[in-house]
Design a protein around this nucleic acid. Structure first.
Lengths: 151, 151
DNA sequence: CACGAATGCTCACCATGCTTAGTGTTGTAC
DNA sequence: GTACAACACTAAGCATGGTGAGCATTCGTG
Protein backbone atom coordinates (compact mmCIF):
# COMPACT_ATOMS: atom_id res chain seq x y z
CA UNK A 1 0.00 0.00 0.00
CA UNK A 2 1.21 3.51 0.72
CA UNK A 3 -0.48 6.74 -0.31
CA UNK A 4 -4.24 6.29 -0.64
CA UNK A 5 -4.73 9.97 -0.05
CA UNK A 6 -5.12 10.72 -3.75
CA UNK A 7 -7.34 7.75 -4.58
CA UNK A 8 -10.85 8.19 -5.82
CA UNK A 9 -13.41 7.56 -3.11
CA UNK A 10 -14.75 4.46 -4.81
CA UNK A 11 -11.33 2.89 -4.71
CA UNK A 12 -10.98 3.75 -1.05
CA UNK A 13 -14.32 2.13 -0.41
CA UNK A 14 -13.32 -1.10 -2.12
CA UNK A 15 -9.97 -1.23 -0.43
CA UNK A 16 -11.43 -0.52 2.98
CA UNK A 17 -13.97 -3.30 2.49
CA UNK A 18 -11.30 -5.74 1.45
CA UNK A 19 -9.04 -4.88 4.37
CA UNK A 20 -11.83 -5.08 6.93
CA UNK A 21 -13.02 -8.39 5.53
CA UNK A 22 -9.50 -9.66 5.75
CA UNK A 23 -9.22 -8.60 9.38
CA UNK A 24 -12.44 -10.50 10.14
CA UNK A 25 -11.27 -13.57 8.30
CA UNK A 26 -8.28 -13.91 10.59
CA UNK A 27 -10.78 -14.52 13.39
CA UNK A 28 -13.34 -16.46 11.38
CA UNK A 29 -11.12 -19.14 9.89
CA UNK A 30 -10.61 -20.47 13.39
CA UNK A 31 -14.31 -21.31 13.44
CA UNK A 32 -14.42 -22.76 9.95
CA UNK A 33 -16.25 -19.68 8.71
CA UNK A 34 -15.67 -16.88 6.24
CA UNK A 35 -16.93 -13.34 6.11
CA UNK A 36 -19.77 -14.17 3.73
CA UNK A 37 -20.82 -17.39 5.36
CA UNK A 38 -21.23 -15.57 8.62
CA UNK A 39 -23.81 -13.35 6.95
CA UNK A 40 -25.80 -16.40 5.95
CA UNK A 41 -25.71 -17.89 9.42
CA UNK A 42 -26.84 -14.54 10.77
CA UNK A 43 -29.82 -14.51 8.44
CA UNK A 44 -30.67 -18.08 9.36
CA UNK A 45 -30.62 -17.31 13.06
CA UNK A 46 -34.08 -15.84 12.54
CA UNK A 47 -35.29 -19.22 11.28
CA UNK A 48 -35.18 -21.36 8.14
CA UNK A 49 -35.41 -19.70 4.72
CA UNK A 50 -35.29 -20.61 1.06
CA UNK A 51 -32.20 -19.90 -1.03
CA UNK A 52 -34.03 -17.22 -2.94
CA UNK A 53 -35.00 -15.42 0.24
CA UNK A 54 -31.44 -15.57 1.54
CA UNK A 55 -30.11 -14.22 -1.73
CA UNK A 56 -32.52 -11.30 -1.80
CA UNK A 57 -32.03 -10.41 1.83
CA UNK A 58 -28.26 -10.38 1.48
CA UNK A 59 -28.15 -8.66 -1.89
CA UNK A 60 -26.44 -11.56 -3.64
CA UNK A 61 -27.39 -13.46 -6.77
CA UNK A 62 -29.11 -16.79 -6.29
CA UNK A 63 -26.31 -18.61 -8.07
CA UNK A 64 -23.74 -17.28 -5.64
CA UNK A 65 -25.97 -18.15 -2.71
CA UNK A 66 -26.51 -21.67 -4.00
CA UNK A 67 -22.81 -22.29 -4.33
CA UNK A 68 -22.02 -20.93 -0.89
CA UNK A 69 -24.76 -23.01 0.70
CA UNK A 70 -23.40 -26.10 -0.98
CA UNK A 71 -20.05 -25.44 0.63
CA UNK A 72 -21.60 -24.72 4.00
CA UNK A 73 -23.67 -27.87 3.78
CA UNK A 74 -20.58 -29.94 3.09
CA UNK A 75 -18.96 -28.26 6.06
CA UNK A 76 -21.96 -29.09 8.27
CA UNK A 77 -23.05 -25.54 9.06
CA UNK A 78 -26.41 -25.72 7.30
CA UNK A 79 -28.88 -28.30 6.05
CA UNK A 80 -30.82 -28.06 2.77
CA UNK A 81 -34.05 -29.94 2.21
CA UNK A 82 -36.51 -29.80 -0.64
CA UNK A 83 -39.77 -28.23 0.46
CA UNK A 84 -42.31 -31.10 0.19
CA UNK A 85 -45.07 -28.57 -0.49
CA UNK A 86 -43.15 -27.00 -3.41
CA UNK A 87 -40.36 -29.17 -4.63
CA UNK A 88 -38.71 -26.32 -6.53
CA UNK A 89 -37.74 -24.79 -3.19
CA UNK A 90 -34.83 -25.69 -0.94
CA UNK A 91 -35.42 -24.90 2.70
CA UNK A 92 -32.19 -24.00 4.43
CA UNK A 93 -31.72 -24.46 8.17
CA UNK A 94 -28.72 -23.77 10.37
CA UNK A 95 -27.41 -26.89 12.07
CA UNK A 96 -26.39 -26.96 15.71
CA UNK A 97 -22.81 -26.66 14.50
CA UNK A 98 -23.70 -23.59 12.49
CA UNK A 99 -25.52 -21.93 15.37
CA UNK A 100 -22.65 -22.68 17.71
CA UNK A 101 -20.10 -21.20 15.30
CA UNK A 102 -22.18 -18.04 14.94
CA UNK A 103 -22.52 -17.66 18.70
CA UNK A 104 -18.83 -18.13 19.29
CA UNK A 105 -17.77 -15.63 16.64
CA UNK A 106 -20.28 -13.02 17.73
CA UNK A 107 -19.35 -13.59 21.35
CA UNK A 108 -15.62 -13.32 20.73
CA UNK A 109 -14.67 -9.69 20.19
CA UNK A 110 -16.98 -8.79 17.37
CA UNK A 111 -15.31 -7.24 14.39
CA UNK A 112 -17.97 -4.56 14.27
CA UNK A 113 -16.66 -2.99 17.45
CA UNK A 114 -13.23 -3.10 15.91
CA UNK A 115 -14.31 -0.85 13.06
CA UNK A 116 -16.19 1.50 15.37
CA UNK A 117 -13.17 1.72 17.66
CA UNK A 118 -10.84 2.51 14.81
CA UNK A 119 -13.06 5.37 13.74
CA UNK A 120 -13.95 6.73 17.16
CA UNK A 121 -10.33 6.60 18.27
CA UNK A 122 -9.45 9.13 15.59
CA UNK A 123 -12.15 11.73 15.95
CA UNK A 124 -14.48 10.34 13.29
CA UNK A 125 -18.16 9.89 14.02
CA UNK A 126 -18.74 6.15 13.65
CA UNK A 127 -22.52 6.53 13.71
CA UNK A 128 -22.47 9.15 10.98
CA UNK A 129 -20.08 7.01 8.92
CA UNK A 130 -22.46 4.12 9.30
CA UNK A 131 -25.44 6.24 8.31
CA UNK A 132 -23.65 7.45 5.19
CA UNK A 133 -22.75 3.88 4.26
CA UNK A 134 -26.32 2.77 4.76
CA UNK A 135 -27.49 5.57 2.52
CA UNK A 136 -25.02 4.57 -0.20
CA UNK A 137 -26.12 0.95 0.02
CA UNK A 138 -29.79 1.81 -0.17
CA UNK A 139 -29.33 4.23 -3.02
CA UNK A 140 -27.42 1.81 -5.21
CA UNK A 141 -29.57 -1.13 -4.20
CA UNK A 142 -32.64 0.75 -5.38
CA UNK A 143 -30.84 1.48 -8.62
CA UNK A 144 -29.97 -2.13 -9.07
CA UNK A 145 -33.18 -3.80 -7.89
CA UNK A 146 -35.76 -1.14 -8.68
CA UNK A 147 -38.65 -3.32 -7.54
CA UNK A 148 -37.43 -2.54 -4.05
CA UNK A 149 -38.66 -5.96 -3.02
CA UNK A 150 -39.32 -5.71 0.68
CA UNK A 151 -40.09 -8.69 2.85
CA UNK B 1 -31.66 -6.60 -0.88
CA UNK B 2 -34.07 -5.02 1.55
CA UNK B 3 -33.35 -4.07 5.14
CA UNK B 4 -29.69 -3.23 5.61
CA UNK B 5 -30.52 -1.08 8.58
CA UNK B 6 -29.67 -3.81 11.06
CA UNK B 7 -26.53 -5.02 9.34
CA UNK B 8 -23.16 -4.81 11.00
CA UNK B 9 -21.08 -1.93 9.68
CA UNK B 10 -18.53 -4.24 8.11
CA UNK B 11 -21.23 -5.87 6.04
CA UNK B 12 -22.53 -2.47 4.97
CA UNK B 13 -19.02 -1.54 3.92
CA UNK B 14 -18.61 -4.65 1.78
CA UNK B 15 -22.01 -4.31 0.21
CA UNK B 16 -21.52 -0.63 -0.53
CA UNK B 17 -18.20 -1.38 -2.18
CA UNK B 18 -19.71 -4.11 -4.29
CA UNK B 19 -22.65 -1.97 -5.39
CA UNK B 20 -20.48 1.01 -6.26
CA UNK B 21 -18.05 -1.17 -8.19
CA UNK B 22 -20.96 -2.63 -10.07
CA UNK B 23 -22.26 0.83 -10.93
CA UNK B 24 -18.82 1.74 -12.30
CA UNK B 25 -18.57 -1.43 -14.29
CA UNK B 26 -21.70 -0.60 -16.20
CA UNK B 27 -19.80 2.37 -17.61
CA UNK B 28 -16.41 0.70 -17.86
CA UNK B 29 -17.30 -2.38 -19.87
CA UNK B 30 -18.08 -0.05 -22.77
CA UNK B 31 -14.40 0.85 -22.82
CA UNK B 32 -13.13 -2.69 -22.40
CA UNK B 33 -12.15 -1.94 -18.81
CA UNK B 34 -13.07 -3.11 -15.35
CA UNK B 35 -12.99 -1.39 -12.01
CA UNK B 36 -9.61 -2.87 -11.07
CA UNK B 37 -7.96 -2.39 -14.41
CA UNK B 38 -8.82 1.27 -14.30
CA UNK B 39 -6.80 1.54 -11.10
CA UNK B 40 -3.77 0.12 -12.87
CA UNK B 41 -4.10 2.49 -15.81
CA UNK B 42 -4.39 5.33 -13.34
CA UNK B 43 -1.15 4.31 -11.64
CA UNK B 44 0.57 3.97 -15.00
CA UNK B 45 -0.49 7.44 -16.08
CA UNK B 46 2.38 8.69 -13.88
CA UNK B 47 4.82 6.66 -15.97
CA UNK B 48 6.04 3.08 -16.37
CA UNK B 49 6.42 0.88 -13.29
CA UNK B 50 7.35 -2.66 -12.35
CA UNK B 51 4.70 -5.17 -11.36
CA UNK B 52 5.91 -5.18 -7.81
CA UNK B 53 5.59 -1.41 -7.56
CA UNK B 54 2.10 -1.51 -9.00
CA UNK B 55 1.09 -4.21 -6.56
CA UNK B 56 2.39 -2.37 -3.54
CA UNK B 57 0.94 0.96 -4.56
CA UNK B 58 -2.50 -0.53 -5.11
CA UNK B 59 -2.48 -2.79 -2.07
CA UNK B 60 -2.80 -6.00 -4.09
CA UNK B 61 -0.70 -9.12 -4.08
CA UNK B 62 1.87 -9.47 -6.82
CA UNK B 63 0.23 -12.62 -8.12
CA UNK B 64 -3.07 -10.85 -8.62
CA UNK B 65 -1.30 -7.97 -10.31
CA UNK B 66 0.57 -10.31 -12.63
CA UNK B 67 -2.61 -12.01 -13.73
CA UNK B 68 -4.44 -8.76 -14.33
CA UNK B 69 -1.55 -7.33 -16.32
CA UNK B 70 -1.49 -10.43 -18.47
CA UNK B 71 -5.14 -9.88 -19.29
CA UNK B 72 -4.61 -6.19 -19.95
CA UNK B 73 -1.65 -6.97 -22.17
CA UNK B 74 -3.72 -9.38 -24.22
CA UNK B 75 -6.35 -6.69 -24.48
CA UNK B 76 -3.78 -4.16 -25.64
CA UNK B 77 -4.06 -1.70 -22.75
CA UNK B 78 -0.52 -2.20 -21.42
CA UNK B 79 2.85 -3.50 -22.59
CA UNK B 80 5.24 -5.58 -20.47
CA UNK B 81 8.95 -5.74 -21.19
CA UNK B 82 11.78 -7.34 -19.28
CA UNK B 83 14.06 -4.73 -17.82
CA UNK B 84 17.37 -5.32 -19.66
CA UNK B 85 19.29 -4.04 -16.64
CA UNK B 86 17.59 -6.52 -14.28
CA UNK B 87 15.92 -9.36 -16.10
CA UNK B 88 13.87 -10.33 -13.06
CA UNK B 89 11.80 -7.19 -13.51
CA UNK B 90 8.94 -6.53 -15.90
CA UNK B 91 8.50 -2.90 -16.80
CA UNK B 92 4.86 -2.10 -17.47
CA UNK B 93 3.82 0.76 -19.72
CA UNK B 94 0.38 1.95 -20.74
CA UNK B 95 -0.19 1.77 -24.49
CA UNK B 96 -1.87 4.52 -26.46
CA UNK B 97 -5.02 2.43 -26.32
CA UNK B 98 -4.78 2.21 -22.55
CA UNK B 99 -4.20 5.94 -22.12
CA UNK B 100 -7.08 6.72 -24.41
CA UNK B 101 -9.43 4.41 -22.51
CA UNK B 102 -8.44 6.02 -19.23
CA UNK B 103 -9.00 9.51 -20.60
CA UNK B 104 -12.39 8.63 -21.98
CA UNK B 105 -13.64 7.03 -18.80
CA UNK B 106 -12.36 9.81 -16.59
CA UNK B 107 -13.77 12.37 -18.96
CA UNK B 108 -17.17 10.78 -19.18
CA UNK B 109 -19.08 11.41 -15.98
CA UNK B 110 -16.63 10.13 -13.44
CA UNK B 111 -18.02 7.63 -10.99
CA UNK B 112 -16.39 9.49 -8.15
CA UNK B 113 -18.74 12.42 -8.59
CA UNK B 114 -21.55 9.94 -8.60
CA UNK B 115 -20.70 8.78 -5.10
CA UNK B 116 -20.16 12.30 -3.83
CA UNK B 117 -23.47 13.41 -5.31
CA UNK B 118 -25.33 10.54 -3.70
CA UNK B 119 -23.97 11.51 -0.31
CA UNK B 120 -24.24 15.25 -0.62
CA UNK B 121 -27.77 15.02 -1.95
CA UNK B 122 -28.87 13.48 1.31
CA UNK B 123 -27.26 15.71 3.90
CA UNK B 124 -24.13 13.60 4.41
CA UNK B 125 -20.70 15.18 4.37
CA UNK B 126 -18.91 13.54 1.48
CA UNK B 127 -15.54 14.91 2.49
CA UNK B 128 -15.87 13.63 6.04
CA UNK B 129 -17.02 10.26 4.72
CA UNK B 130 -13.96 10.12 2.52
CA UNK B 131 -11.69 11.09 5.39
CA UNK B 132 -13.14 8.35 7.58
CA UNK B 133 -12.65 5.81 4.78
CA UNK B 134 -9.09 6.91 4.29
CA UNK B 135 -8.46 6.49 7.97
CA UNK B 136 -9.90 2.99 7.94
CA UNK B 137 -7.78 2.04 4.95
CA UNK B 138 -4.61 3.40 6.47
CA UNK B 139 -5.24 1.80 9.84
CA UNK B 140 -5.85 -1.67 8.44
CA UNK B 141 -3.10 -1.33 5.86
CA UNK B 142 -0.61 -0.61 8.62
CA UNK B 143 -1.90 -3.66 10.46
CA UNK B 144 -1.46 -5.81 7.40
CA UNK B 145 1.81 -4.45 6.01
CA UNK B 146 3.52 -3.25 9.17
CA UNK B 147 6.68 -2.22 7.32
CA UNK B 148 4.63 0.72 6.14
CA UNK B 149 6.71 0.65 2.98
CA UNK B 150 6.53 4.13 1.56
CA UNK B 151 7.75 5.12 -1.91
C1' DC C 1 -56.40 -31.85 -18.56
C1' DA C 2 -52.94 -29.38 -21.59
C1' DC C 3 -50.01 -25.77 -22.51
C1' DG C 4 -47.19 -21.80 -21.69
C1' DA C 5 -45.41 -18.62 -18.21
C1' DA C 6 -43.31 -18.01 -13.94
C1' DT C 7 -40.51 -19.79 -10.32
C1' DG C 8 -36.50 -21.82 -7.82
C1' DC C 9 -32.37 -23.70 -8.42
C1' DT C 10 -28.09 -25.59 -10.92
C1' DC C 11 -24.27 -25.51 -14.26
C1' DA C 12 -20.57 -23.38 -16.62
C1' DC C 13 -17.70 -19.64 -17.23
C1' DC C 14 -15.28 -15.10 -16.22
C1' DA C 15 -12.89 -11.64 -12.95
C1' DT C 16 -10.64 -10.57 -8.59
C1' DG C 17 -8.95 -11.38 -4.30
C1' DC C 18 -6.22 -14.63 -1.43
C1' DT C 19 -2.56 -18.49 -0.35
C1' DT C 20 1.36 -21.74 -0.97
C1' DA C 21 4.86 -23.28 -3.79
C1' DG C 22 7.77 -22.85 -7.37
C1' DT C 23 11.42 -20.65 -11.27
C1' DG C 24 14.88 -17.77 -12.77
C1' DT C 25 17.94 -13.67 -11.82
C1' DT C 26 20.77 -10.86 -9.11
C1' DG C 27 23.58 -9.64 -5.14
C1' DT C 28 26.71 -10.94 -1.39
C1' DA C 29 29.93 -13.44 1.48
C1' DC C 30 33.40 -16.37 1.69
C1' DG D 1 34.08 -18.09 -8.46
C1' DT D 2 30.93 -20.55 -5.96
C1' DA D 3 27.35 -21.07 -2.66
C1' DC D 4 23.43 -18.91 -0.46
C1' DA D 5 20.09 -15.38 0.27
C1' DA D 6 17.07 -12.03 -1.55
C1' DC D 7 14.31 -10.53 -5.22
C1' DA D 8 10.74 -10.39 -9.09
C1' DC D 9 7.63 -12.91 -11.10
C1' DT D 10 4.75 -17.27 -12.33
C1' DA D 11 1.73 -21.31 -11.42
C1' DA D 12 -1.98 -23.60 -9.32
C1' DG D 13 -5.82 -23.79 -6.46
C1' DC D 14 -9.61 -21.93 -3.22
C1' DA D 15 -13.44 -18.48 -2.19
C1' DT D 16 -16.64 -15.04 -3.66
C1' DG D 17 -18.69 -11.92 -6.70
C1' DG D 18 -20.88 -11.57 -11.41
C1' DT D 19 -23.31 -13.39 -15.97
C1' DG D 20 -26.13 -16.27 -19.26
C1' DA D 21 -28.27 -20.59 -20.14
C1' DG D 22 -30.93 -24.47 -18.85
C1' DC D 23 -33.77 -27.86 -16.05
C1' DA D 24 -37.52 -29.28 -13.16
C1' DT D 25 -41.56 -27.90 -10.85
C1' DT D 26 -45.63 -25.25 -10.13
C1' DC D 27 -49.21 -22.00 -11.43
C1' DG D 28 -52.74 -19.97 -14.42
C1' DT D 29 -55.58 -20.03 -18.25
C1' DG D 30 -58.30 -22.06 -21.46
Amino acid sequence: MSEGADWPTGRLLSTAARLVEHAWDDVLTGYGLTHSRLVILHLLSAGPATQRELARRSGMEEQTMGRMLRGMEEHGHVRRERDPADRRRSVVTATDDGRRALDEVVGSGSADDLLADVLAGSGHDAAEFRAALLHVVQHFARRRWPDGGQG
